[in-house]
Each structure stands twice: as structure tokens, then as C-alpha cells.
């Protein structure tokens, strides 16, 4: 099973919604790649500039209820189009989280204190994360220090990541 890793983009706010991740006016795009330039365009977060802050990032670390609001799978697609396939948060909105696993991406949920520990040790970076869905091990480091966490993944979620997504899984089974 693949591991998920890369440079971290820190988004220090709770309740980041899918309208902020990808505004509805871009939902007329049918190709996923076309969403790439618009990721986090409407994010309300002081100091954040999508034009400069997204480059070279593969992982997001954020707070509670990430991806709330609309069901649009365009939100994880816009992340994926930018090379981001791992989000670490203290909580996710249900549909967004399911969409990530359905696309074979990885949503890692940690306790708020653990997320706080990552923010205080590494934000604003540069820092890297490596998550292994097989072992449930997450390592965050900046070359000098590192923190290690274990995370819970349901049997079903692990199966989805392994299968590459829900369509692949369901197609074999139903």
C-alpha cells in the first residue's frame, strides 16, 4: 500500500469549508486538472496567499471540521490536481472525508492536542510528513526534530485506499 508524504501547508483555522477550497463558480469545469489554479482561492485566513503558499506542498495540516459545507468532490480533486493527497486534521466533515477515501486519498484524524503539538513545533515550516496507512504511523519532521503519532484507520477505509478508491472496490464486490 502506498505511503503519503511531502511538504506541509499549515492552515491554522477550523471549519474551512468546501466553498473556500474551490468556489462554486469553477464547478462548471468537467476536467479535474482544470480546477488546479483555483484551489483555496477564497480561503479566509490571514497571511495566506494561494499564489505563493501552495507551491511544492503535498500535505495539509489543519484544525477541526475541515471540508464542511458542500458535497462537491471538486474539493479533493482540486487538492489532488495540486499534488496534495494527505490532509491531517483534528476532524473532517463527513462527506469531504468520505470523498477523500473514495478517491484513494488519505485523511488522517488526530486529537486536537496532537494537532496543536504539530503546529507549535513546526508551523509555519518548512516541515515534512510521512503517513503509512498500513501501519497507521505518521511522522512529522523538519530535519532537526521529529514527532511521531499513530492514527486510526477503519478496516473499510484501509481497503478503499488499497483498492485505489470506492469505484474499484464496489465494482469487484457488488
Amino acid at each position: 500500500m502506498k505511503t503519503f508524504s511531502g511538504n506541509i501547508l499549515f492552515l491554522d483555522r477550523s471549519d474551512i469549508n468546501t466553498d473556500e477550497i474551490i468556489p462554486a463558480k469553477y464547478l462548471t469545469e468537467i476536467s479535474r486538472q482544470a480546477l488546479k489554479p483555483y484551489l483555496l482561492e477564497d480561503l479566509k485566513l490571514e497571511g495566506f496567499n494561494p499564489a505563493t503558499d501552495l507551491a511544492g506542498k503535498q500535505v495539509i495540516v489543519t484544525r477541526a471540521n475541515f471540508g464542511c459545507g458542500s458535497s462537491r468532490e471538486h474539493a479533493p480533486w482540486a487538492l489532488e490536481a495540486n499534488g496534495i493527497d494527505l490532509v491531517i486534521a483534528s476532524g473532517f466533515a463527513r462527506i469531504f472525508r468520505q470523498n477523500m477515501f473514495n478517491c484513494g486519498m488519505l485523511a488522517v484524524e488526530l486529537a486536537p492536542e496532537q494537532i496543536e503539538a504539530i503546529f507549535s513545533a513546526f508551523c509555519p515550516g518548512p516541515a515534512q510528513a510521512v503517513a503509512d496507512p498500513q501501519t497507521g504511523r505518521l511522522v512529522v519532521s523538519d530535519g532537526e526534530k521529529s514527532l511521531e503519532f499513530s492514527f486510526e484507520l477503519g478496516e473499510f477505509e484501509r481497503a478503499l485506499v488499497q483498492a485505489g478508491g470506492w469505484v474499484e472496490y464496489a465494482d469487484k464486490r457488488y
Binding site: G69, S70, S71, R72, E73, P76, I95, F96, Q98, N99, N102, C103, G165, W166, V167, A170, D171, Y174
Partner: peptide, 28 residues
């Protein structure tokens, strides 16, 4: 569509889902 929860007003279990869930719903 996230506001699919509206239909619970009739005593249904109605839930918004993403496109992949929808795709499997359509197919299977």
C-alpha cells in the same frame, strides 16, 4: 448535493454524497 438531508423531513434516510459515491450509486 449536501442538502439532500432535506428529504429526511419525510422520515427517509437521505444523505448528500460526493461524485464517486454518486457514481457507484448510479451503477450499483
Amino acid at each position: 448535493d449536501s442538502h439532500t438531508c432535506t428529504h429526511g423531513a419525510f422520515g427517509a434516510f437521505a444523505a448528500g454524497v460526493g461524485t464517486t459515491d454518486l457514481e457507484v450509486g448510479i451503477l450499483k
